[in-house]
Amino acid sequence: MEAMERRRAAADRVRVAEGVVEQLREGLAEFGVKLPSLRIDPVSCAGDEPAPLVDLGRCNIDTALRLCEVLAEKESGHDG
């Protein structure tokens, strides 16, 4: 029974990570930012007790600049 519980807990961690990735994707999209490589790192999900990592991926300079703009706007108190 213990092995089954561990598998369920592992599956729950992966589901939570999937939800986080989707939340990030939607939240960034609201500010016009798209990270095409945003995903769960598959290697971190391997094994009996996965510890999923969110891979923000690689982005081009335009996307990185847009992220900087969004962060600067939030820091200055502007949401535009």
Results as ranks from 00 to 15, higher is better:
Met1Thr: 09
Glu2Ser: 08
Glu2Thr: 02
Ala3Leu: 12
Met4Pro: 02
Met4Trp: 13
Glu5Ala: 13
Glu5His: 04
Arg6Trp: 01
Arg6Lys: 05
Arg6Pro: 01
Arg8Pro: 00
Arg8Thr: 03
Arg8Val: 11
Ala9Trp: 04
Ala9Thr: 10
Ala10Gln: 00
Ala11His: 05
Ala11Cys: 01
Ala11Met: 12
Asp12Arg: 08
Asp12Glu: 10
Asp12Gly: 00
Asp12Phe: 03
Arg13Pro: 01
Arg13Val: 07
Val14Pro: 01
Val16Asn: 09
Ala17Ser: 07
Ala17Thr: 00
Ala17Pro: 00
Glu18Ser: 09
Gly19Tyr: 04
Gly19Thr: 00
Gly19Ile: 01
Gly19Ser: 05
Val20Arg: 10
Glu22Lys: 06
Glu22Ala: 11
Gln23Glu: 14
Leu24Ile: 14
Arg25Phe: 02
Arg25Ile: 06
Glu26Ser: 13
Glu26Met: 11
Ala29Arg: 12
Ala29Met: 07
Ala29Asn: 08
Glu30Phe: 02
Phe31Trp: 15
Lys34Met: 13
Lys34Glu: 15
Leu35Asn: 03
Leu35Tyr: 00
Pro36Trp: 00
Pro36Gln: 01
Pro36Met: 03
Ser37Gln: 14
Ser37Leu: 11
Leu38Gly: 05
Leu38Tyr: 02
Leu38Asp: 08
Leu38Met: 02
Arg39Met: 09
Ile40Asp: 04
Ile40Phe: 04
Ile40Thr: 04
Asp41His: 08
Asp41Pro: 10
Asp41Cys: 06
Pro42Cys: 02
Pro42His: 05
Val43Trp: 10
Ser44Asp: 08
Ser44Ala: 04
Cys45Lys: 01
Cys45Ala: 10
Cys45Thr: 15
Ala46Gln: 13
Gly47Asn: 05
Gly47Cys: 05
Gly47Ile: 13
Asp48Asn: 03
Asp48Trp: 05
Glu49Pro: 00
Glu49Trp: 02
Pro50Phe: 08
Ala51Asp: 15
Ala51Thr: 15
Ala51Ile: 13
Pro52Trp: 13
Pro52Ile: 11
Pro52Ser: 09
Val54Cys: 02
Val54Gly: 00
Arg58His: 11
Arg58Ser: 15
Cys59His: 12
Asn60Thr: 11
Asn60Leu: 04
Asn60Gln: 06
Asp62Arg: 06
Thr63Gly: 02
Ala64Pro: 00
Ala64Asn: 01
Ala64Phe: 10
Ala64Glu: 15
Leu65Ile: 12
Leu65Thr: 09
Arg66Ser: 10
Leu67Tyr: 09
Leu67Arg: 04
Cys68Ser: 12
Glu69Asp: 15
Glu69Gln: 14
Val70Gly: 03
Glu73His: 05
Lys74Trp: 07
Glu75Arg: 12
Glu75Pro: 01
Glu75Lys: 10
Ser76Leu: 14
Ser76Gly: 04
Gly77Glu: 06
His78Arg: 14
Asp79Ser: 12
Gly80Ser: 11
Gly80His: 09
